[in-house]
Design a protein around this nucleic acid. Structure first.
Lengths: 400, 400
DNA sequence: GGCAATATATTTAGCTTGTATCTAAATTAC
DNA sequence: GTAATTTAGATACAAGCTAAATATATTGCC
C-alpha cells in the first residue's frame, strides 16, 4: 500500500471544476451567476474555475450578443437589466469520441462530438467468421477512419473509443481468458489503435453498452434499475442496478446462455434464431423458402396460425427469462433491443400478460427505439462517460 | 436543484480525517510516521488531523509505553531508536452499535463495540405470528435493552442500529408498500426506537445482511462478487456485486420466490421446508414421527436410501437455483447460510458436480460458518458501515 | 556519563483555494 | 441624463496543506 493520494488544496479545484464543467455541459451556455447558484461557490471562485477551464480548452467564453434585446432563436427573449453577464459555453468540439459495435459478421463505427451528437458513421463486413484477429482489426480500423472522414474529424482529436463485443468483458475491460478468440482480439485491438492513433479503447460487452445506450437515449431514460435484452441472433442481457452496470466476477453477468436449460432449448439463442428454428420444426412458413424472422412476423401479422403459435411460444419464453431476471434483480424496466426489436412490439402484450404468473415483481417491458444503433449509442455513451470522468486529466490537443 | 455543496477547504480536512481514521481503525494503534506513509500527508497535517479526531472522541493518544524494550505481548519487540513516537489508538468504545435479526417467530439483538466485537446478545420470541406491530416492537425493544445490559453498555451511546427483516427493503431502508404487515412494522419500529432511545435504525433485508456478514467474517471474506443464499425455512438471496449490495427498484432483488416455478415447486421454500415436504410425500422417515430437516440429514448420514434420495433432489434444486444466479450475476462465490447451513455441507459435492451442466460460469460454493449469527453479524456490519461513513457528522456522547 | 546518530515533534513561512466585502462598470427604465 | 439593477473585479482574510528549519527524546557506543 503506497500513498493513498492525500487530499491537497488542488483537489478542491478539481472537484469544483468538475461540477462547473458538468453544469455547463448540461446547459450548453451558462453565466457566472447561474453557476454560483448551481454550485454554491462564490463569484470569485466560479470565475477562477471558468478561466481555468478555458485554459484547458473545455469551455469557451462567448462574446457579448449583439444589441438585439429579444433576438436570437435561443433562450434569452427576456430583456435583461444590469451589466451583461459573461457567457461560458461548453466547447463541444474540444474533441470527439468513437463508438464501435464489433459483431461477428460486421462492425460499425460512429463518431460523436462531446455532447454525444453523432456526426459520422461507417460500417464494414468481415470476410468470414473465422478470419485472423489482425484482419478483423484492420476492418475495424478502416471503419473508424471512414467514419472520422465522413464527420470531418481529425483522428488526433479522438479522446476515447468505446467498443462493444459479444463476449464477457470484466470491469477493467478485459475479456475472459477462456474466450480465446475474443481474448486475443482484445489485446490486439487495444494495442493496434493505441499505436496507430494514440486512442484509448474501452472494451465492453455489447449488451452492457446497449443498456447504457437505452438509458441515455432509448426507452429507459432516467431509469436506474434497467435491464436490456439484446435479443437478435443471440440473447444477452445488460444489467444496470442503481445506475451502474453489473459485470460480476469475470464480466459474464447477463450471459444467459444456459438460463433456459430448464426448457431444454439450445443455449444462447435470441429471438431471430428461435423463430428460425421453430418455424423449421413446424414445417416452414406458409409459402416455403427460408423462414426468416421478418417473414414469420409478417405471416403472423397476416393472421397465419402457425406463425402466431410460434410467436406465442416466443412470448412465453421471453416472459420466463424476464421473470427470472425480475426475481433476481428486480429492475424497474426491461427493454427488448437488437435486430428484431421493431417487430418485437407485437410480443409485448403477450409477455406483459404472462409475467405476473412467473414473478411477484414484474417490470415494465418495452421495445427499444434505437434499432441497429443501440450498441454504438451505448459505446458512444461509454466513451463519453470516460471523458467526462477524466476531463481534467486529459490533455486536449490544440484546436484546429 | 439547490446548492450542490461547494467544495470548501474544510472538505480536505474531512477527507483526510476519514482516511486517517480508517487506518487507525484497521491498525488499532498507529504512529504519525505510519500515517504519513499511508495517507501521503505531511507530518504537520497528520498531527493536526489526529488532534482533531481526539477532540471529537474518535481516537485517543496512548501514553508512552514503559521502559521495556521488547516487553509487551504486542507488536514492537524491535528496540526502536530515536525519539519515541506519539501513539494514537482507535477509541473502540466511543460508542456501540446494535445488530437485530427480526424473524417471524423470534428476534435477536447483538451489541458490538466499534471494532465489531460482539459483547452482548439477547433473544426474544413473539407470542404468535400475527401479533400487532406494537407488541412485536415491544419484544424487539426488550431484546435490545437486555443485550445492552448484558454488555454493560449505556443505551445512550448506541450510534446506529442495523435491523434485518424477511421482506424486501429498498436502498433507502423502506419496506415495499405492498408488504402491508412489514411496512407498518417498519415505520413503527423506526419511530419507536428513535423516540425511546434516540437511535437511528437502518432496515435491510435479512438475506442482504447475511451477505454483508459473510463477506465480513464468514467464508466470503474479500470476495467482491458474492451471493449468500439464506436457505432455512425460506429461500432468499443477498447479492453483492463489486462489493455493493443489490437492491433493485423496490428492494426485491434476490427474492427468488418464483424462480423455481419451472419445476412447479411451492414458491419460496428453503431447504428445511423442502426436506419436510418431500419426506412427507415419500412416506416419512424410517422411524415415523415428524420429518424434521435434522432428522433427514441424520438418516442420510446413516445410509438411509429415502433420505439420500431427498438430499439428491435438494442438491439438484440448489444447483439449478445457483446456476440461474451464476448466469445472471456471475458471482465468484455462493455461500449457503441459514439454519440448515451446517448440515448442508454434505450437499456441496453434489451441487458442485451438477453446476457445470447448468451454467458456463459456475461459482465456488461454500457453506456459512456463521450459523444462527449470520444475520446479526451482517446487521452489526451494516450499522458499522453507517457509523464509519458518517463518523465526522456524528456527535459522540460524552464518555462515561 | 557524555556524545553522536536517529527518529520524531514542533515551528515558521508560503502556496492554493476558498469566502466575504467593497467598489467599478455596463446596461435598462424612466 | 440619471437612477436602478446586475454583474465584474479587486482587496482582505481564513482554512488547510507543503516544505524546510529547528527542537526534543531516545538508543548505542566509547
Amino acid at each position: 500500500m503506497p500513498h493513498a493520494a492525500a487530499a491537497t488544496p488542488q483537489l478542491l479545484r478539481r472537484v469544483n471544476a468538475q461540477a462547473v464543467l458538468r453544469h455547463i455541459r448540461g446547459a450548453d451556455v451558462a453565466t457566472g451567476t447561474e453557476l454560483m447558484a448551481l454550485t454554491g461557490l462564490t463569484r470569485a471562485s466560479v470565475i477562477a474555475v471558468c478561466e481555468d477551464l478555458i485554459g484547458r480548452g473545455w469551455i469557451v467564453e462567448l462574446d457579448q450578443p449583439r444589441n438585439e434585446p429579444h433576438a436570437g432563436r435561443g433562450m434569452p427573449p427576456v430583456p435583461r437589466k444590469g451589466r451583461p453577464a459573461r457567457r461560458f459555453a461548453f466547447n463541444r468540439e474540444a474533441g470527439f469520441v468513437l463508438g464501435l459495435d464489433i459483431g461477428a459478421a460486421t462492425t460499425t463505427a460512429a463518431v460523436a462530438d462531446l455532447r454525444g451528437r453523432v456526426i459520422g458513421r461507417s460500417s464494414g463486413s468481415f470476410r468470414a467468421a473465422d478470419i485472423p484477429a489482425l484482419e478483423r482489426i484492420g476492418v475495424v480500423d478502416l471503419a473508424c477512419r471512414k467514419a472520422l472522414e465522413a464527420a470531418g474529424a481529425d483522428p488526433g482529436r479522438v479522446l476515447a473509443v468505446g467498443a462493444g463485443i459479444a463476449a464477457p468483458v470484466d470491469r477493467d475491460g478485459n475479456v475472459l481468458v477462456t474466450q480465446r478468440f475474443w481474448s486475443l482480439f482484445d489485446v490486439g485491438l487495444r494495442s493496434a489503435l493505441k499505436e496507430l492513433h494514440g486512442w484509448t479503447v474501452l472494451l465492453e460487452n455489447d449488451a452492457n453498452l446497449a443498456a447504457l445506450g437505452e438509458r441515455w437515449r432509448g426507452s429507459g431514460v432516467g431509469v436506474d434499475d434497467l435491464v436490456v435484452l439484446l435479443a437478435g441472433e443471440r440473447l444477452g442481457a445488460g444489467v444496470m442496478e442503481s445506475g451502474r452496470l453489473l459485470h460480476g466476477r469475470g464480466g459474464a453477468a447477463g450471459e444467459m446462455g444456459y438460463l433456459d436449460m430448464v426448457e431444454g432449448v439450445g443455449s444462447s439463442d435470441g429471438i431471430a434464431a428461435l423463430v428460425r428454428q421453430w418455424s423449421a420444426a413446424d414445417g416452414g412458413p406458409s409459402a416455403g423458402g427460408p423462414a426468416s424472422a421478418p417473414r414469420v412476423f409478417a405471416d403472423a401479422a397476416a393472421g397465419d396460425a402457425t406463425a402466431l403459435a410460434i410467436l406465442d411460444r416466443i412470448s412465453e419464453r421471453m416472459a420466463r427469462v424476464i421473470a427470472s431476471i425480475a426475481s433476481l434483480i428486480n429492475p424497474e424496466q426491461v427493454v427488448i433491443g437488437g435486430a428484431v426489436a421493431e417487430s418485437a412490439g407485437v410480443l409485448l402484450p403477450g409477455i406483459t400478460a404472462l409475467l405476473p404468473r412467473f414473478t411477484a415483481t414484474p417490470p415494465r417491458v418495452t421495445v427499444s427505439p434505437l434499432g441497429d444503433a443501440i450498441v454504438t449509442a451505448g459505446a458512444v455513451r461509454h466513451a463519453l462517460d470516460y471523458v467526462e470522468a477524466n476531463a481534467l486529466e486529459l490533455a486536449l490537443p490544440a484546436p484546429a
